[in-house]
Simulated scan of single mutants.
Amino acid sequence: MRGTIVETLLSRLPALPDLSRLRGRRARLVRRWLAAALLLAGLIVLIHPASARGTPGTATVVSARDLPAGATLRAADLRLADLPEPVRPQGALGSVETAVGRLLTGAARAGEPLTDARVLGIPGTGETGRASVPVRLADAGVADLLRSGQHVDVVAAPDALHPASVLAEDVAVVTVSRPEAGGGRAAGPSTQGPLVLLSLPVSVATQVAATSLERPVTVTLR
């Protein structure tokens, strides 16, 4: 009698879910999610293949070691590196040959990309046709206006024997260096004011260097 009652109660309970069927449904759901993820990855590869394979680099000239301002670049000072376009500077040099023999307008750290704004001279010739001349400016305030790569005219101030004269036109500023305070050196045209390193045509470099030792020199901005 008791068994009959238990059997009757059990028969009225709702049917329990099939656990194997639940596991099958979960497996199918996981497979569907995986298929969707693979499809999405495939679409990304089709639309942006470079992002999936890694952005290809472009050959870029970089400094092989720390270089000072005014250095004439040699092949040993340079190397090529592949840089992705998003980080490659505008105007970056693409071959060592275009940089060799040119003048560096500012100090460069090892691995720094070199651009056309950082070098002076004739590209690809291995010969700049220019010389670096240090000139001390009579007016220190003018030096504060100068920056590497800027073009100026070099002017000699008048004295008892000479009128003011333009020594060189359209020359490039390589760097500006100011004298240390308390240097204790004698005053004179060659020891006063900031020292400006100029990139000049060889034909006038000697004249500018010699005149700057005898007369105060300044520059006019272009």
Rank of each mutant, 00 (worst) to 15 (best):
A107S: 14
I122M: 03
V217C: 02
R147G: 13
A108Y: 02
D139P: 03
S165Y: 02
A143P: 10
V171T: 10
A187T: 11
G188V: 10
R215M: 08
V119T: 15
L161P: 01
G188S: 08
G149H: 07
V173A: 02
G126M: 05
E169L: 08
R178T: 13
P134M: 15
V217S: 01
V174A: 11
Q207D: 14
G126N: 03
L213I: 09
G149W: 04
D153A: 14
S212C: 04
D170P: 07
V166E: 14
G188H: 11
V135R: 04
A110F: 01
L146R: 02
G141F: 11
E169W: 07
V133C: 05
Q150L: 13
S199D: 10
V202T: 15
S199P: 00
P201T: 11
A107Y: 02
T128S: 15
G184K: 11
S190K: 07
A107P: 15
E112H: 00
L120N: 06
A131E: 15
A205N: 07
A210N: 15
P123T: 06
A209C: 07
V171H: 09
V142P: 02
S212D: 04
Q207Y: 12
A209P: 05
A107E: 05
S148M: 02
A156F: 12
V166A: 09
V119F: 08
R147I: 01
P194W: 09
A164I: 08
G111H: 00
L197I: 08
L120R: 07
P179C: 14
E127T: 11
A131T: 13
V202Y: 05
V155K: 02
V154R: 00
P134R: 15
V152S: 14
A143N: 05
V133R: 02
E180Y: 06
L161Q: 14
G111F: 00
A117N: 04
T191D: 12
T206F: 15
S177G: 04
T128G: 13
G149V: 05
R147N: 05
E169C: 06
R185S: 05
E180R: 10
V155D: 13
G121S: 03
P163G: 15
L161M: 12
T191F: 10
P113E: 00
T128W: 03
V174K: 01
A117G: 09
Q150G: 08
E180P: 00
Q192P: 00
Q150R: 06
P179H: 10
A117V: 06
A117S: 13
R147F: 06
G149K: 01
H151N: 01
V217R: 00
P134T: 15
L137V: 06
L167D: 06
G188L: 12
L197V: 14
G183Q: 14
E127W: 08
Q150Y: 08
V166C: 03
V176H: 07
D144G: 14
A172I: 04
G182V: 13
S165H: 03
A108E: 05
D144Q: 07
A209H: 08
R215A: 11
Q207M: 09
G126A: 03
L146S: 08
E180D: 12
G182M: 12
R109V: 02
S177Y: 03
H162F: 10
R130L: 13
R136E: 15
A138E: 14
